[in-house]
């Protein structure tokens, strides 16, 4: 149809518009880069938005120290190719400095500790806008999130007192010490992200693609065996064809059994999926409002 965009092109145009607003309205913006598909898409959009100039933002990785090795390799390659700056905020360092205390026990995770490291990193580098790849379809608290989301000087989100956001007029005004989280792909769904990766042929870590991996069955999903996970006698490691729908801390990111070994097969699998992608994330299962609670404190 003449003068009409497909849904992916319209979403892309909206995200590029938002990223250019961030560049124009803030002094020191950054991209929060986790190595997951959403932040990879975000980085790809930034490349398009400012071409032929380089991406005018550093990539900030909040590193739990519990990574899939593939994630780090992928991150370093990407940064190299784009020629942009990489800033790593280390959760291990926050623990060593006594800023946070490590959780213990079988289901211990560094997920919640990331908030402190993230806020410390933002403060240290004086970032006034941090762009993240969070989407509104992911989780009920995120469904209420703005594109430009205000954070007070403690980095907290106040969901009941958000600024109205109309048309495409974004208000990034703030006082000293406050900052913004900006979510350029707010309106994308998991399906949109995969279709876009396929359409644009974007490189992604092999973790998303089905491979034979050593896993254990825990909390209703396949958890990858790694040095960061405490095996108990009842855990029986076995080899399965596994892929991951989301990538987070290796200790809490469960995989699904799959034979989707190409992008096209992944899109097909996502279309037929009957479970949400975060269904395999132990961090969201702690309570009905765990995402909302973490977000209020300054989580991604």
């Amino acid at each position: 149809m003449r003068y009409s965009l497909t849904h992916l092109k319209e979403l892309e145009a909206e995200s590029i518009f938002v990223m250019r607003e961030v560049y124009a309205q803030f002094e020191k913006p950054a991209i929060l880069f986790s190595g997951g598909k959403d932040s990879i898409v975000l980085t790809h959009l930034a490349k398009k938005a400012f071409w032929p100039a380089r991406i005018p933002f550093p990539l900030v990785h909040i590193d739990t120290g519990h990574n899939f090795p593939e994630t780090i390799e992928f991150r370093d390659n990407l940064v190299n190719k784009l020629g942009c700056q990489l800033i790593v905020g280390s959760v291990q360092k926050s623990i060593d400095d006594g800023r946070v205390r490590e959780e213990t026990g079988k289901n211990a995770s560094r997920n919640a500790l990331q908030t402190t490291t993230l806020l410390d990193t933002i403060e240290h580098y004086q970032f006034d806008a941090c762009m993240g790849g969070a989407r509104r379809d992911e989780e009920k608290a995120r469904a209420k999130e703005r594109f430009f989301s205000h954070r007070d000087d403690f980095g907290q989100w106040d969901p009941k007192n958000q600024r109205p956001e109309l048309w495409n007029l974004f208000n990034g005004k703030k006082h000293m010490g406050e900052h913004f989280r900006v979510f350029p792909i707010s309106n994308w769904t998991e399906m949109d992200v995969w279709q876009y990766i396929l359409m644009e042929n974007i490189e992604i870590p092999s973790l998303y693609i089905a491979h034979e991996r050593e896993v254990i069955w825990r909390n209703n999903s396949w958890l990858p065996v790694s040095e960061h996970i405490k095996l108990e006698d009842s855990d029986k490691p076995e080899k399965r064809m596994i892929r991951f729908r989301t990538l987070g801390d290796i200790t809490i990111t469960g995989g699904v059994e799959s034979d989707a070994d190409t992008l096209a097969k992944i899109v097909e699998e996502v279309a037929a999926a009957r479970q949400t992608e975060r269904g395999n994330r132990a961090d969201d299962k702690r309570s009905e409002t765990s995402m909302e609670d973490r977000k209020k404190q300054g989580y991604f």
Partner: peptide, 28 residues
């Protein structure tokens, strides 16, 4: 259902965005 307060009070406080798609269109 959305935020904690909304669930407790059975009301909607803020705009929430929801997504679905059919083979013809994506809806927001």
């Amino acid at each position: 259902d959305g935020l904690k307060d909304e669930r407790e009070q059975g009301i909607t406080i803020d705009v929430a965005y929801r997504y679905f798609a059919t083979p013809q269109r994506k809806f927001i």
